[in-house]
Computed example of a mutant assay.
Amino acid sequence: MPAAPDAITSPQNPRIKNLLRLQQKSSERRQQNLTIIEGYRELTIARQAGVAVHSLFVCPELASPAQQEALAGMLDRDSEWFTVSKPVFEKVAYREGSDGILALVRPPQHKLANLKLPAAPLLLVLEAVEKPGNLGAILRTADAAQADAVIVCDPRTDLYNPNAIRSSIGCIFTVPTVATTREELLAWCRQHGIRTYAAALTETAIPYTTCDFRGPTALVMGTEADGLTPELREACDQTIIIPMRGAIDSLNVSTATAILTFEAVRQRQQR
């Protein structure tokens, strides 16, 4: 790691002000093509996935010496890095108990047309997701199950929202994640022979355990509040349910996604 510049000790420093803008405004993230990763673990996962570090901010009072040494290998030749005083770092940190490491990175730009898929892909589709925590939890499921992509139709949140990165523990960088429209998704699935399974409570829905997920499969999930839109639900090939045996009639979307995803994994392992 090169010699460090003088520590940033003022919250009025232009770089600190920019960090706060990027943290708070998706428009700034889009305009600058940057997002924020906080935490050594998350940054390590992103770097292993090939994400380039634009600039690194380290608080020596919070980051361990071993972490600081390891960070040297994460920097590209043109990366910048800065030391930050503890009071200033605590101003820009967006989680409690931060380890003193924060990076600006260029988020990947995945497109449907550029996805490299196996013969029988397993895809997770989310419609109009708006809670970064739900998106992050589903990305962790996708990583654990080695799903081939997560596709978000008409998202209501920035896919690379710092809170989504945090809740995914960096898994948004390990699984190709694409934002698209409902129409583009459906056309693309038809073009590639991908069967779409909509999770929704309808009269024609069948239990998920009766489905064959071994072929090209897209599991399509709606929002917590409203579920799938009628347009997307009716356009899917099959409607499926997770049978409920208690008083409630639905599960948290991230929990439901995990159940369906690992049923598909189970079937594929038995093939």
Rank of each mutant, 00 (worst) to 15 (best):
F262D: 05
M74K: 09
R195Q: 15
L71A: 04
N163D: 15
F173A: 07
A149T: 12
C189Q: 05
M221T: 09
L102H: 04
A137I: 09
Q12H: 06
P14R: 01
R95F: 11
A66P: 01
R47L: 01
A7I: 01
Q191D: 13
Q146Y: 14
Q267Y: 11
L124S: 06
E184T: 13
V51P: 00
E203Y: 04
A49F: 02
K91E: 12
P108R: 01
S98D: 08
I259P: 04
P11D: 02
S250A: 14
T181G: 10
D226K: 05
S167F: 14
E127L: 06
S250H: 11
P162E: 09
Q267V: 03
R21A: 12
V150D: 13
T196K: 02
T35L: 00
N114E: 15
D6N: 08
A179H: 08
Q109P: 02
A52L: 03
T177D: 07
Y208E: 09
A264C: 07
M1T: 05
A199L: 15
I169N: 10
Q24G: 00
R15G: 01
R106K: 08
I194E: 09
I240H: 07
E90M: 13
L232M: 12
A218C: 04
V253L: 06
G246R: 04
E90P: 07
P162N: 12
Q109C: 05
W188P: 06
N134M: 11
A179E: 15
